[in-house]
Simulated scan of single mutants.
Amino acid sequence: MKKQTVEASLVAYVTDKEKDLYRLAYNYVKNQEDAFDVVQESIQKALASVDSLRNPNAMKSWFNKILVRTAIDFLKKERKIKAMDCQTIEFLSKGKKDIYHDIDLHETLEELSYQYKTIIVLRFFEDLKIKEIAEVTGDKVNTFKTRLRRGLMFMRIHLT
């Protein structure tokens, strides 16, 4: 398939699924602006490496893989920059607190390592199929199933 055709398919996919892609990024970074940045950076990475897409039918899993890895890289980078000065802490203490309806679920999900969190978010929040998630994570299906079972077991223990 020609590069221009694949690029056009990528643009169509991103345009069609923009809300889903944003939601997936937001599940990782927990910030609206950062989620937009992650999606934008993912689109740039995808356009730059569109030649590596061998099967245009696998665009969804290919792009989701780029998006998930970009979000994880963003979080790793953010951890390194977390140094706050006194003014920032004072500013943050004056703001309104976030209210979550399922706070236990979100806290437990945040305690998971990236490999388990990715699988659970993609399976239950993004409703991807097992085979698609295995493609996104680059794991075998049986490895995915094992990690899903372990991640859910960890969550059950911490939620009960």
Score class of each variant (00 low, 15 high):
S49T: 12
F124A: 05
M84Q: 11
T146P: 02
E7M: 11
D16W: 09
R149Q: 09
E126R: 04
K80M: 11
H106N: 10
K129S: 04
A12G: 00
K19C: 04
A48D: 06
T143F: 02
I89A: 15
H101F: 05
A25I: 04
H158T: 05
L24Y: 00
S113C: 09
Q4A: 11
P56Q: 02
V6G: 00
I157N: 12
D139M: 15
L128A: 04
I99F: 08
Q40Y: 07
E107A: 13
D127E: 12
E135K: 07
M84K: 15
S93V: 15
K131W: 03
L148R: 11
D127G: 02
I120A: 02
S49H: 14
T160V: 13
F154N: 08
T137G: 07
M153D: 14
I157Q: 14
F144A: 07
A35F: 04
R23D: 13
V68N: 04
E33G: 11
I133G: 01
K60T: 06
I66C: 07
I99D: 08
C86F: 14
G95L: 15
A58F: 04
L159R: 00
I66P: 08
A83D: 14
K77V: 12
D37H: 04
M59Y: 02
E41I: 15
K19E: 12
L122K: 00
N31E: 09
K145R: 10
R23S: 11
R156E: 09
E7T: 08
K45C: 01
F63Y: 05
Q44Y: 11
K97F: 10
S113E: 10
D34G: 05
I89Q: 14
V136Q: 01
Q87S: 15
D51W: 05
L67R: 02
H101G: 03
T146W: 04
Q40F: 08
R123F: 05
R150H: 07
K77N: 12
V38Q: 01
D85H: 10
L105Q: 02
K3N: 00
I43P: 01
S52N: 10
Q4G: 13
R79P: 06
D16C: 13
A46D: 05
K145H: 01
M155S: 01
I99K: 10
E111G: 09
V141K: 08
E90A: 15
A48I: 06
